[in-house]
């Protein structure tokens, strides 16, 4: 049953539809509209430093919030009984199956100035809040959409922790803080790392969430790239250069993070 030639069609497919497109991005990034080699796409990028900073900052905040909520969630879930766990995991995955545009759109009716949250606030005679079209709303949209990507990988490693290891530590005199610090935390680290990756990358590159919840106030990398390819500012060369720089920055972030995790192999979500 070992037959390595079965991989040949897919290797060819990958070469054409995975590797070649990325090579094209690099080629576009280093050429001008007339086809000549140039670095101007990169040198003209300094005007977008703010966009880069904003994107990485908002994505970082969203990832931190996801971790702060998702880690305890996964930890608590893993301690529940079999039946509750199954239902809870299904409930976490269920929104993922609804299109994320719909989920983000739903927040619009909650966050608007005359939206449901503000109606509730004025009903209680509390001051209303301006929430939509702020960076905060964008972070909320990111957290809402990508929280399952944090919970699920952490949960899947937590679930596999052998309760006997914890009991053994307790028998040897460890209190619950020590058990958490010395056993649960290190064993759950691979899940945390893959969770961070799975939240950070879509957050830093999103363009739909910003357009729905951030209005015209927030321009992020995703929006910038999109306008270069589909929008009014059509310039795929500049767009490719921005995409390339974003890809490299993300790679650097991930490399630093994985170093921090001492090369633990990332857990796969499903």
């Amino acid at each position: 049953m070992r037959n390595k030639y079965l991989a040949v069609p897919y290797v060819v497919w990958m070469a054409v539809f995975v590797v070649a497109p990325l090579v094209l991005v690099v080629v576009y990034a280093f050429t001008a509209r007339d086809g000549g080699l140039t670095l101007s796409n990169f040198t003209s990028m300094h005007q977008y430093v703010g966009v880069f900073g904003n994107s990485f900052l908002l994505a970082l905040i969203a990832t931190a919030v996801c971790l702060a909520v998702g880690y305890p969630m996964a930890f608590l879930l893993a301690r529940e009984g079999e039946r509750i766990r199954q239902i809870a995991i299904m409930l976490i995955m269920l929104p993922m199956w609804m299109n994320f545009l719909l989920r983000t759109y739903a927040w619009m009716s909650l966050l608007e100035d005359t939206g449901l949250i503000n109606r509730l606030l004025s009903l209680l005679h509390l001051p209303t809040l301006h929430m939509i079209n702020t960076p905060g709303a964008v972070v909320l949209g990111m957290v809402y959409n990508f929280l399952p990507f944090m919970v699920l990988p952490i949960y899947s490693v937590m679930e596999k922790i052998d309760p006997k290891v914890i009991e053994a530590a307790q028998d040897l005199g460890a209190d619950s803080v020590t058990v958490f610090r010395r056993i649960i935390l290190p064993l759950s680290l691979p899940g945390v790392l893959s969770g961070i990756t799975m939240v950070f990358i879509p957050s830093v590159s999103t363009f739909v969430i910003t357009q729905l919840l951030g209005g015209s106030m927030t321009m992020l990398l995703g929006d910038l790239i999109q306008t270069q390819f589909m929008g009014t500012a059509y310039n795929p060369h500049l767009g490719s250069a921005i995409a390339l720089v974003m890809m490299l920055l993300v790679l650097v972030c991930m490399a630093i993070m994985n170093r921090f995790g001492e090369g633990e192999e990332g857990a796969v979500m499903l």
Binding site: A7, M14, Y28, F229, P236, A243, M246
Partner: peptide, 26 residues
């Protein structure tokens, strides 16, 4: 092969999208 196979999963969707678009247009 597995490293290349991982690219579409770990890359941001927008990069997979625009890179394929460049290829298809060309």
């Amino acid at each position: 092969c597995l490293a290349v196979n991982n690219i579409p999963m770990t890359n941001a969707d927008i990069i997979t999208g625009v890179s394929l678009m460049l290829l298809f247009v060309l």
